[in-house]
Amino acid sequence: MPAILAAEPDAVLLIVGGGPYEQDLRRLATATGVAGSVRFTGSVPWSELPAHYGAGDVFAMPCRTRRGGLDVEGLGIVYLEASATGLPVVAGDSGGAPDAVLDGETGWVVPGDSPTPTADRITTLLADKELRHRMGERGREWVEQKWRWDLLAEHLKKLL
C-alpha cells in the first residue's frame, strides 16, 4: 500500500470481511503509515457483497502458497465474482487462482509473495481508466460465456 499511495495518493484500500488476520492487518496498516487509507468492513453478509465490489475500481487478492505448498488458494471464486461485476482483477499465483483470471485480459496474475509486482499492476490499473474498463468488460463477458452456474451444471451433468 505504501507503493500504491506513492503513485496514487488518493487510493483507498477496502478490506472486506473479517477473519483471524484482521488485527494483524490493522497493526500493519498503522506500522506502515497507511492506516488513514485503509478501511476494514468486518464480516459482510453475502447479499451485500455486490455493493462492496461496486465500490471499487480494482479487485486485488494477491494470494500466496504457504506452509511448504500445503496451503494453496482453491479456484478463487472471488476473482470471478469481481469479474462478473466488471472489475479488473489482480490475483496471486497460488493454486487455482490463476484459473479464474485471463492473464492480461481480465486482469493479471502476480507472484503472491512479492508486493512490488502487485503494487505495479494495481497502480497501472488505477492510472488508466480505459484499461480498467476494457479488462472489466472482458471479465464480465468471460464469466457470462464460461462460468455461469447453468453452464457449469450442464458440464457436470455430462461428466456424470
Rank of each mutant, 00 (worst) to 15 (best):
P2E: 10
I4Q: 09
L5I: 08
A7N: 06
E8I: 15
D10G: 11
V12E: 15
I15G: 10
G17N: 06
G17C: 08
G17S: 09
G18E: 06
P20K: 13
P20H: 13
E22N: 07
E22A: 06
Q23F: 09
D24Y: 12
L25I: 08
R27S: 14
A31V: 04
T32C: 06
G36E: 07
S37T: 01
F40G: 00
F40D: 01
T41H: 10
V44F: 09
P45R: 13
S47T: 06
S47Q: 08
E48F: 03
L49Q: 11
L49C: 06
L49H: 05
L49D: 05
H52G: 00
G54F: 02
G56K: 01
M61Y: 04
P62F: 00
C63W: 01
R64P: 00
R64M: 02
R66Q: 07
G68R: 01
G69E: 02
E73D: 12
G74K: 08
G74Y: 05
L75P: 00
L75I: 03
L75V: 03
I77R: 11
V78C: 09
Y79L: 10
Y79E: 01
L80G: 02
E81V: 04
A82V: 08
S83C: 13
A84E: 01
T85S: 13
G86R: 13
L87H: 03
L87Q: 07
V90Y: 04
G92N: 04
G92T: 04
D93S: 10
A97M: 02
A97T: 03
V101F: 07
V101P: 09
L102K: 14
L102C: 08
G104A: 02
G104Y: 09
V109Q: 02
D113S: 14
P115M: 06
P115R: 06
T116I: 12
T118L: 15
R121D: 03
T123P: 05
T123G: 09
L125A: 04
L126Y: 02
A127K: 14
D128L: 03
K129T: 15
E130P: 03
E130Q: 14
L131N: 02
R132H: 09
R132P: 07
R132N: 07
H133C: 12
R134W: 01
E137W: 08
E137Q: 14
R138H: 14
R138K: 14
R140W: 10
R140F: 04
E141C: 09
W142S: 13
W142G: 08
V143H: 00
V143I: 07
E144Y: 05
Q145I: 10
W149Y: 10
A153L: 14
H155M: 13
K157G: 05
K158V: 13
L159H: 07
